[in-house]
């Protein structure tokens, strides 16, 4: 799950957090998933199912749904994943003056 974001959380813990809203059907199921996937960040437990109060308030009907929120609390990106999530995050980090992680160096011709 989000291998690059996991490393960014570890590297930039002062600037960046992942916060989950979990819709699993029980606390046990959530605990088990966190353990198995080595999820180190916190999640809201949304009442034990997909129709929970948070997901309902936010109109979430597909999982995963992702919002990227900046340090001022403004929604900046929605449903970015993979490479576009990486670049969105690096943009926000650089706005905060954090040196972006350099892309893999291309060999000169």
């Amino acid at each position: 799950m989000y291998p690059h974001e996991r490393s960014l959380v570890e590297k930039h813990s002062d600037q960046f957090v992942i916060l989950g809203v979990n819709s699993d059907r029980s606390r046990d199921k959530l605990r088990e998933a966190m353990k198995r996937e080595n999820i180190t960040w916190n999640s809201f437990y949304d009442g034990g199912g997909t129709g929970g109060p948070i997901a309902t308030s936010w109109g979430v009907r597909g999982w995963p749904t992702i919002y990227l929120i900046d340090a001022e609390g403004v929604i900046r990106f929605k449903d970015v994943r993979g490479d576009s999530l990486d670049s969105a995050l690096e943009q926000l980090l650089s706005e905060m003056g954090v040196e972006p992680i350099p892309p893999p160096r291309k060999t000169a011709l």
Binding site: Q15, F16, L19, V21, W63, Y67, L68
Partner: peptide, 18 residues
Amino acid sequence: VQLSDHRGKIVLLDFWGD
């Protein structure tokens, strides 16, 4: 837990289930 606890940091808000 409150979302605003993390104001000052970038938050990846992830609605998920296993």
